[in-house]
């Protein structure tokens, strides 16, 4: 399937749903270029009216953090409760926090 000579590049697909505020990663697909990727994403991921907007990104352009660095990256945040705005009372008018 992933023989690079005979298959199209991989694209990551992000869909914004009707209720959603941001685009969410929904999966990936193969396509020869961006235009085809949008078309394919429409067919593969929005068949049941899931979306109102589509982003496609070449998978090779995504830089991911390494699982080996997980401790160094994420553990220090564990014991710093003061970074969370839990000590404030949120006014009712403020939505989507």
């Amino acid at each position: 399937m992933s023989d690079s000579k005979n298959s199209w590049p991989l694209w990551e697909v992000f869909i914004r749903s009707k209720q959603g505020l941001g685009h969410k990663h929904v999966g990936s697909l193969h396509a020869a270029d961006a235009e085809m990727a949008i078309g394919n994403a429409r067919d593969v991921y929005t068949r049941r009216q899931e979306g109102v907007s589509i982003w496609v990104v070449p998978a090779e352009n995504i830089t991911a953090s390494s699982p080996e660095n997980a401790e160094a990256l994420f553990d220090p945040a564990n014991d710093k409760v003061y970074r969370h705005p839990t000590f404030f009372v949120l006014p009712d008018e403020v939505n989507h926090m």
Binding site: W8, L29, H30, A31, G39, N40, D43, V44, R47
Partner: peptide, 11 residues
């Protein structure tokens, strides 16, 4: 020829 196209044609 490809999964994506399979779905497109049947759509």
């Amino acid at each position: 020829p490809a999964l994506e196209e399979d779905i497109a044609l049947t759509n």
